[in-house]
């Protein structure tokens, strides 16, 4: 872990959905992690593992049937306890910048990129006057490397990569200390993934911001992240350095290992079975039914210790005598 001060500090974050008929869906359970300034943490896992719900919780965008517990500190503010007014006036855009999934759909189709930027600049910085707004919008576009001659285009005339930059420019306007990117590469062509994540990475390397990327695209995570948190069935099962995770000695949790081995440039072998239902999680380790290392010990819930929540983790290469 870095010695820099944490921008976002999540402690014991849990989210439950109350469903009709009294069912409770355990979408996120007891998440602990920090993101430091100048650092990128990638939250990875299969769809439905709870990672998007976690992001929504941080932004206060959960639906009415959700219940949360724990805390998510951003400076002095607990994002989970903040009311809608605080979230709308001081958090969204100002403290947390969101880079949404499918940015082309996130932009209003009838307005140009420039008009989006002008509105956001006016709302977040209080800039007034036509010329000043235009200048501020151009500056904001330049920060995200969005070409100035495309500013007067409508979203449908942008390529996927440019739409992504437009969305990034909008997220950067408020100069928020935390950027949250939700599946920034889904739907992008493979050739566009690398430049897009490099672009995101650039904003972290200034050292002031931190970036939380939520993705199931392991190749993108590998390129952008300093650390990775692997989520399975609502829990973080491994939290470790990205270089050791994707390189040697590799991940230590059997699930993370299986996920990496499923990549087409590795073994291309699927994990057996499917993730459990979040509404009826097994007691103990949720991955045990799919795990080839499972023993009787796995009926007890493994604690996240030393970066991995497993009773039988793979040992780091150096320790294997």
């Amino acid at each position: 872990m870095t010695d820099r001060e944490a921008v976002l500090s999540v402690r014991g974050l849990s989210v439950r959905f109350l469903m009709p008929g009294g069912r409770r869906i355990a979408a996120v359970t007891d998440a602990h992690f920090d993101v430091a300034a100048g650092e990128c943490l990638a939250l990875i896992g299969e769809s439905g593992c709870g990672k998007s719900v976690l992001a929504s919780a941080l932004l206060g965008l959960l639906p009415a049937n959700a219940r949360t517990a724990g805390e998510a500190r951003l400076g002095d503010l607990d994002l989970l306890a903040a009311g809608e007014r605080t979230l709308a006036r001081t958090v969204r855009g100002r403290l947390v910048g969101l880079i949404p999934q499918s940015p082309a759909a996130h932009l209003t189709p009838v307005r140009t990129v420039c008009s989006h930027l002008r509105e956001t600049v006016a709302a977040l910085t209080g800039t007034r006057g036509r010329a000043a707004l235009r200048a501020a919008a151009e500056a904001a576009a330049a920060r995200a490397a969005f070409p100035a001659d495309h500013l007067d285009r409508h979203p449908h005339r942008l390529s996927g990569g440019l739409a992504q930059r437009a969305a990034t420019a909008l997220a950067l306007v408020g100069d928020a200390p935390l950027l949250l990117a939700d599946e920034p590469t889904t739907g992008l062509d493979r050739d566009l993934v690398d430049p897009t994540v490099d672009e995101l990475r650039r904003h972290v390397d200034t050292g002031r911001r931190s970036l939380l990327v939520i993705t199931h695209d392991l190749a993108a995570a590998r390129r952008i992240a300093d650390r990775v948190a692997v989520m399975y069935a609502g829990r973080i099962v491994e939290l470790t350095d990205a270089r050791t995770f994707f390189g040697t000695p590799g991940p230590r949790h059997p699930y993370s290992r299986g996920l990496l081995e499923a990549l087409p440039d590795r073994a291309f072998a699927p994990l057996p079975g499917m993730p459990p239902e979040l509404g009826s999680l097994p007691r103990g380790c949720a991955f045990a039914p799919r795990c080839d290392r499972a023993t009787d010990a796995c009926t007890a819930l493994p604690r996240l210790a030393d970066g991995v929540a497993c009773h039988h983790p793979h040992l780091p290469e150096g320790l294997r005598a």
């Binding site: 299969e46 769809s47 889904t186 739907g187 199931h216 996920l259 499923a262 291309f268 699927p270």
Partner: peptide, 9 residues
């Protein structure tokens, strides 16, 4: 295109 690595495999 919309799926994770394990489901893809």
């Amino acid at each position: 295109a919309m799926l994770d690595a394990s489901t893809t495999a």
